[in-house]
Design a protein around this nucleic acid. Sequence first.
DNA 1: CGGGAAAAATTGGTAATACCAATTTGGACT
DNA 2: AGTCCAAATTGGTATTACCAATTTTTCCCG
Lengths: 254, 254
Amino acid sequence: MSAPHLTRTEDVFSTLRHEVLTGQYRPGERLPSERELALRFETGRGAVREALRKLETLGLTKSARGGSRVAAIDEASLDVLGPLLDLHPVPDAELVDQCLKVLELLVGDACDQLLAKGSEAGIAAVRERIAQFLALSAGDPNLLTARLALSQAMLRECGNLPMRLIANGLRMQLLERLWPRLPEPDETSLGEVKALLWDLDQALEGRNRRGARRALQALTQLNRDHLRAALCDAGATCDVNALLPTPPPRGLTP
Amino acid sequence: MSAPHLTRTEDVFSTLRHEVLTGQYRPGERLPSERELALRFETGRGAVREALRKLETLGLTKSARGGSRVAAIDEASLDVLGPLLDLHPVPDAELVDQCLKVLELLVGDACDQLLAKGSEAGIAAVRERIAQFLALSAGDPNLLTARLALSQAMLRECGNLPMRLIANGLRMQLLERLWPRLPEPDETSLGEVKALLWDLDQALEGRNRRGARRALQALTQLNRDHLRAALCDAGATCDVNALLPTPPPRGLTP
DNA sequence: CGGGAAAAATTGGTAATACCAATTTGGACT
DNA sequence: AGTCCAAATTGGTATTACCAATTTTTCCCG
């Protein structure tokens, strides 16, 4: 196996994380004790404890003397999205779309803030990214990188730190899972994208906030549609609620 | 002292987190070894390791055989916002405002999605929250709770999970720090809020997306203005960039 | 029989030690 | 100066032992 050499801690961590996310323990319920877990995973208590500390910082559990308990979904960190996407062999199309929707919101507002502030340097930096993308042709392996660099530049230049952290977190978790499934742009769709980017560039040059927003909106809508189609073709589920922890019937305590 | 009984692990964790966030180690730089840290904090290596695991899940460091290294800001989790707010005795007004801006975006879009989907039950649930708030009078200790429950309901009913996770994370981190500083609403400002909430309720009843958005926008703008004023009066700084760790003067990790 | 307090068992928190494997480092050799 | 190898360093894991807080059980008393 070409396994990426999981450490024991990571093994315990990801297994427990998966079990919590699939609702095998219901919120508020006690987890098995550290000693039991160590026995079950055939490892030392130290590794189990480190895994539990990671679960805790993810907001999935709360540890205290007397026992660890699983937390409500609302207390979880954004970082559980990745693992949620991993619950099925193909990421859930609806959840991916929801992520993209949020990204669209953020990038759109970042662009708006950028134009509102009127930061010359910021606008120039973003337009530079657009130019770099427009210079690429179909089949170029750097297409995706250039496209991502564009949104990143917007988020950086707009100066809103929380926005940047959120967008980066979402982007990284999505990319890890979607990289192999990203639809490679054909001639025509690339043409569409380039046309919209050209519109965006013009809007930026003219400090036209409404125009920029419209172009961005169209761009991300294009992305969402393509990706959703690709995922559904690959047999993706399409129901976020089905992903949320659904506690199994109780009564078993092996 | 009212020390909340910090465990040694939490002590090491929060100290190291603070040092990383204040830029005492530059991105890519190596942290002291676990054994050194254990010596410095006069504790065992186990506690240090658990603290490092927590830093790692926050995205602040990367650990590997040979040494732990601090990561770039962009890799950090949204959960570092709270500690960033703690860098000064009074939370940075600009950063708080940026968080509220994001929340405004999210709640606004949640409301929009709610009306777009036309979920009767969802709309009814939100309107119920509005009614509960409107029933309260100035000085009631439940005012804040009711106000928060309203935005939470919107985020829950709109069905966008990432949005909900982000908003909850932001909200919790902000509330922890701002609770004692929240401006208590006087008669007149409460009247303003109630009027806007009444507008919002009407818009919801009439399925008027634009009206709802406008009312929400006005509401959150009110909040932002009040809070910013309160923080600045308390002597808050107002420069996010000054909060960020000093950017690496030379050389990036390949 | 019920309730509540004391005792016992359980559990997380910390510490100390030892060993392994991967990485880093430094120096010797070419 | 460049290369390569061996030793020191470092993180990963396992084992053991206590402590303190919590939970569970027991048992006495009303």
